[in-house]
Amino acid sequence: MRELRVSVLPPYNFDLVLDRLSLDPLNSVDISSRTVKVPFYGEEDEILEVTATGTTDDPSFLVQMEKEDRGNARLDYLKKVFQWEGTLQEIHQHFLDTDLKDIFTEHSGTPVVLEFNPYSTLMKSIIHQQLNLAFAHTLTQRFVHKFGREKDGVWFYPAPGETAILDVDELREMQFSQRKAEYVIGVSKEIAEGRLNLQELEKKPDDEILKELVKLRGIGPWTAENYLMFALGRQNLFPKTDIGIQNALKKLYGMDRKPTLAEIDEMSEAWSPYLSYASLYLWRSIENRK
């Protein structure tokens, strides 16, 4: 086991990061030891263990790796996933002059942590479409437990090629709808057969990525925006059709109804160019946390 010490710029609240990661039952999180085990998708499945050793104002981490990190591929991956480069101070300061001041003060130092794999981000988003969060997690868990892989308590999503050859009935048996099963298999085929190259897609600007993704059956604006935020870490996305966002805004402004899309546009105007952070912190404001 290789060990590495990492320091990042404050503020950075890893306890709130773990709190949110723990909402997904597929994540291997230990709140008491301030540790998360991260799946690393390479030629072989590996586990990277990240433990917080510092505070919000002096953040530091112990990273444990199974193999030597030649070329810093594993560390670079963790830096990207946990947004360890740069500082949240400028973003935090931006929101202190907006209607989100109190929410940003409560959740100060929470980064937009990425999902652990771009392909799994797409699969999770498609599965979660139009479902309540509890059943969405249950359905995703069934999918990964049946077709993915487990190593030392850490779950890895199946590869695109493995999902592409599934039969719709295999997913229907898990309570997938007919269409959702078709979407999961169809998008996986696009990737497995090379028509959708996620590595090449990452190099493009937001608007081009959105246009390319929504061409695929089963991927609408909500899923595409989630991909930009949680697979690529783009900072200025605001999925205004998301029910959670709408409910958070209803709560924030004390409304007796959900805001209209036009009202949401007006509300969120001052939050650019960090709309992804506005989205995350609004979700945090209504999540049932442990």
Score class of each variant (00 low, 15 high):
Met1Ala: 14
Met1Asp: 10
Arg2Gln: 14
Arg2Glu: 13
Glu3Leu: 12
Glu3Asn: 12
Ser7His: 11
Val8Ser: 11
Arg20Asn: 12
Ser28Gly: 08
Asp30Phe: 05
Thr35Asp: 07
Pro39Tyr: 01
Tyr41Val: 11
Gly42Ala: 11
Glu44Thr: 13
Leu48Lys: 11
Ala52Tyr: 01
Met65Ala: 10
Arg70Phe: 04
Gly71Asp: 11
Asn72Ile: 00
Tyr77Cys: 08
Tyr77Gln: 10
Leu78Gly: 03
Lys79Leu: 03
Val81Phe: 00
Leu88His: 09
Gln89Ala: 14
His92Gln: 11
Asp99Gln: 14
Lys101Thr: 13
Lys101Met: 13
Asp102Thr: 13
Glu106Pro: 01
Gly109Cys: 12
Thr110Ser: 14
Glu115Cys: 04
Asn117Phe: 00
Pro118Ile: 06
Tyr119Trp: 14
Lys124Phe: 05
Lys124Pro: 03
Ile126Glu: 03
Ile126Gly: 03
His128Ile: 00
His128Asn: 12
Ala136Arg: 05
Leu139Ile: 09
Thr140Ile: 00
Thr140Asn: 12
His145Met: 07
Lys146His: 13
Phe147Trp: 13
Arg149Met: 08
Glu150Trp: 00
Lys151His: 06
Tyr157Arg: 10
Pro158Trp: 01
Ala159Arg: 15
Thr163Lys: 03
Ile165His: 09
Arg172Val: 12
Phe176Thr: 08
Tyr183Met: 13
Val187Cys: 09
Val187Ser: 04
Ile191Ala: 00
Ile191His: 01
Gly194Gln: 10
Gly194Pro: 11
Arg195Ala: 12
Leu196Thr: 04
Leu198Gly: 06
Glu200Thr: 12
Leu201Thr: 11
Leu201Trp: 05
Lys204Arg: 15
Asp206Phe: 02
Asp207Gln: 15
Ile209Pro: 03
Ile209Met: 13
Lys211Tyr: 05
Lys215Trp: 00
Arg217His: 08
Gly218Tyr: 05
Pro221Gln: 12
Trp222Ile: 08
Thr223Glu: 08
Ala224Phe: 02
Glu225Ala: 00
Glu225Ile: 00
Asn226Trp: 02
Tyr227Ile: 03
Phe230Tyr: 14
Leu232Tyr: 07
Asn236Ile: 06
Leu237Gln: 15
Gly244Cys: 09
Gln246Cys: 06
Lys250Tyr: 02
Gly254Trp: 00
Met255His: 06
Pro259Ser: 11
Leu261Ile: 12
Glu263His: 05
Ile264Met: 13
Glu266His: 13
Ala270Gln: 15
Ser276Asn: 09
Ala278Phe: 02
Ala278Thr: 05
Tyr281Ser: 03
Leu282Cys: 13
Trp283His: 14
Arg284Phe: 12
Arg284Ala: 15
Ile286Asn: 08
